[in-house]
């Protein structure tokens, strides 16, 4: 399986994502430069963590205008798997591929720590191998990771079973403890925590692997 990893000039977890899928999972990772208008032959796309274009404005507010995002939107529209992690989640929200917004953490500080996640649904290509009866240890590292949406959107997300992960012990004030959400078609997921940084024992946890393995299992079946 080939994962395309989008590289904005300020991406800084692009190599983490590529390492997880290539070195740990044994799949292929291709870097895709932000001004590309095509994604090439990839089976899934990862928008990695970082600071896309510096993000001195609202995170992702400029990235949504980048040439590669037009290609990502088309890819998603055609049913391709798109995973946005941290800054990638922020960009997907800004680009309108996912509902809601990510605002400053409730404590107004950047937080880097391991958190516990519980899958909200296993009915998605990103969580199909996860188990709802256990929690997953995965780190967060963000200053603007507080998920926010209006009540109607939140009710809709819940009614449509689109909450991918919830925090156990909410670190940043996200409404309804939301750590990750899916689009209506379930082929796009945004996730604030970093599963790519929890893929080997030396990283302190392998629990993040479930996301990539789920994606792989779906691709193999398809």
């Amino acid at each position: 399986m080939t994962f395309g990893v989008i590289v904005f000039p300020g991406s800084n977890r692009d190599h983490d994502a590529a390492y997880a899928v290539a070195n740990v999972l044994g799949q292929k990772a291709e870097f895709i430069w932000h001004d590309s208008t095509s994604l090439g032959a990839v089976d899934a796309v990862i928008l990695p963590g970082g600071f896309s274009y510096g993000d001195y404005l609202r995170c992702g507010a400029i990235a949504k205008f980048s040439p590669v995002m037009t290609a990502v939107k088309k890819f998603a529209g055609d049913g391709g798997l798109v995973l946005g992690i941290c800054n990638g989640f922020q960009i997907l929200v800004e680009a309108g591929l996912l509902p809601g917004a990510l605002i400053r953490n409730r404590g107004l500080q950047f937080i880097c720590r391991e958190v516990q996640l519980r899958p909200g649904t296993t009915d998605s290509p990103f969580t199909c191998l996860a188990r709802k009866d256990r929690t997953y240890r995965v780190p967060i590292a963000h200053g603007e990771g507080c998920y926010f949406a209006d009540e109607r959107t939140l009710d809709e997300l819940e009614a449509e079973d689109r909450i991918a992960f919830r925090y156990v012990g909410n670190p940043n004030g996200s409404v309804r403890d939301i750590a990750g959400v899916l689009n209506r078609e379930r082929n796009v997921m945004g996730l604030m925590p970093h599963p790519e940084d929890a893929t080997e024992p030396l990283m302190g946890s392998c629990d993040g692997l479930v996301v990539f393995q789920s994606m792989l299992s779906v691709a193999v079946r398809a």
């Binding site: 800084n12 500080q109 950047f110």
Partner: peptide
């Protein structure tokens, strides 16, 4: 130190 990203590069 929680205000610092001590994990980026996944080599810590």
């Amino acid at each position: 130190w929680e205000q610092y990203d001590y994990l980026v590069r996944s080599s810590t």
